[in-house]
Nucleic acid binder design. Structure first.
Lengths: 153, 153
DNA sequence: TCTGAATCAGGAACTGTTATTGATTGACGA
DNA sequence: TCGTCAATCAATAACAGTTCCTGATTCAGA
């Protein structure tokens, strides 16, 4: 079971809570305890957990939840715009409460993901659109490197 | 069996052939008929075939070749720098004889991949490096959209 | 409270890829 | 030319991540 009291007062600001409720209302999906648990897990985690990470966190509070349910919840949450996801080759998709366009880098040694602030992409997307007959729908910058810890080894 | 005569005279320029031979020589790997067949398949294909696509082409000439062999060949060819690969989420890795850094776009409807010429990334990588404590090792722009054909439908 | 639709847990199935196996090949020296 | 030994091979099993399917459960609205 989810400790809803704690969730409301400590974990989620009112604005976010309102925003989430609103997005569920508009979409027609229901904000079930499982979907709430997935959101809480994302909130409790620094960084960008994988579905498996989230599953393990959710299971601590509700051991009956299945991995498939977590995937379903993640897909609904992403569809209604409450969470975002990012994919690096050769590693599971990572999820994120930050739905704004932003840059993330993944350590190719330990897998840790961190945000990169302050990078300006400028007119890159427009430039791409000018040079292809395709209609461009998404351009994602996939960045990899070594985190400070792994650099030392 | 590979028609090596045709391969040499029609499919491969002397320069590329030389380059490939040289890369094999330096690496210590041998240029076997299977690896040659994979290269030929890449050369015969417009666009950016997947391992499966290449496997089907190779099988036309040598039905005994297994998919695993194609993967092995691709991994050797990529390791020695004869081919390049690119990965989009939710679709198999695509391979390419163009090993220079360049932009590709994938149609999210039919999966077709095409090159995008003339886009200037400028100092993007330097800008990223300035804004993260990670040491950046690769930045890949993953572009998706709709190809001209799929736009009409 | 009842009813139908949405959602669930559990597990099977699927896709793309890698690892393992013993058999085959092919480059090189005698 | 032949033998030797490492490299490579085909075939298949295994694997990770994810999706799909099923019947059971829950929940919102009448």
């Amino acid at each position: 079971m989810i400790d809803e009291g704690k969730f409301h007062t400590q974990e989620m600001t009112n604005r976010l809570e309102q925003d989430i409720r609103e997005k569920f209302r508009r979409s027609g999906y229901t904000l079930t305890s499982q979907r709430r648990a997935v959101l809480e897990a994302l909130r409790d985690t620094r960084g960008h957990p994988s579905a498996e990470d989230i599953y393990l966190l959710v299971k601590k509070k509700n051991p009956r939840v299945a991995l498939g349910t977590v995937y379903q919840a993640l897909s609904v949450l992403e569809e209604i715009g409450v969470i975002g996801s990012k994919h690096w080759a050769e590693s599971p998709t990572r999820y994120d409460l930050n739905t704004e366009p932003h840059l993330d880098i993944r350590c190719r040694r330990c897998g840790e993901v961190a945000e990169i602030p302050g990078v300006e992409l400028g007119n890159l997307e427009a430039q791409i659109q000018e040079n292809t007959p395709y209609s461009v729908s998404s351009t994602t910058l996939v960045v990899e490197g070594l985190c400070p810890t792994c650099q030392k080894e």
